[in-house]
């Protein structure tokens, strides 16, 4: 039962309606399915294909392009340690080494209890705060190996469950467009007229 559940299905329909073409909703819907199940299942991809009117192969082809989508179960927490230049200059190598030792898995692996997946990541846009890492895409800055051990201990103890939702959840507040304020998308083939506030070309001042 890993198609989108009823609540997510109605959310999915809301999201699809915001785009001029349904297929544009594909990545947000894949995120929604990953939020529901922790990873992207084949059933979810088939469901999304129905919803945006493409084949499952097209969903799979798109989904596999993107690093964040996982196609097998991963830990409740995915720890991404940045290894690109600024972080590498300030100790990312030691941090990754320590994480592998403490967790007993190599980068790319998941702990036996299924709690933590470790990944070496690429630049996370926090280069002034090197070395940095993310847990389920929540930042930790200027991390020392000992702080990393503490973080792992906290994750294991469950003391960060409020701060860090399970893997798959990104923003916890969703965009909501009130029906009475919504302009609604226009399919690209529909309109050729200028919008209401644009003067006709001959009235343009420049």
């Amino acid at each position: 039962m890993s198609r989108l559940n009823d609540a997510n299905l109605s959310l999915a329909r809301e999201i699809i309606a915001r785009y001029p073409r349904p297929r544009s909703a594909m990545i947000p819907l894949l995120h929604l399915s990953q939020e529901q199940n922790g990873y992207v299942t084949e059933e979810a991809m088939a469901h999304i294909a129905e919803l945006v009117d493409v084949t499952s192969a097209e969903v799979y082809g798109t989904a596999t392009f993107y690093e964040m989508f996982k196609f097998h179960p991963v830990g409740r927490y995915v720890v991404n340690i940045c290894g690109t230049l600024s972080c590498a200059l300030l100790g990312a190598g030691e941090l990754i080494h320590r994480a592998e030792e403490t967790l007993g898995v190599r980068a790319g692996g998941t702990t036996d209890d299924g709690l933590i997946t470790l990944e070496q990541a690429e630049c996370q846009a926090a280069c002034t705060e090197a070395p940095c890492l993310q847990v389920n895409y929540r930042f930790r800055y200027r991390v020392t190996p000992d702080e990393l051990d503490q973080l792992i201990a906290d994750l294991r103890a469950g003391s960060l469950t409020d701060e860090i939702p399970p893997h798959g959840t990104l923003a916890r507040t969703r965009q909501q467009i009130p029906a009475d304020r919504w302009v609604r998308p226009v399919a690209p083939e529909e309109t050729t007229a200028a919008p209401a506030w644009m003067p006709a070309p001959e009235e343009t001042s420049s």
Binding site: R18, Y19, S24, I27, P28, L30, H31, A63, F65, Y66, E67, M68, F69, E122, C123, L170, A171, Q175, I177, P178, D180, R181, W182, V183, R184, P185, P195, A196, W197
Partner: peptide, 24 residues
């Protein structure tokens, strides 16, 4: 400020939040 007839004017604009999935 966003949506139909912004600040009572003719201007109507939707801004849709979209998010990626990891690809430089």
């Amino acid at each position: 400020y966003v949506g139909k007839n912004i600040l009572g004017s003719d201007l109507s604009v939707d801004i849709v939040l979209h998010w990626g999935a990891g690809a430089y």
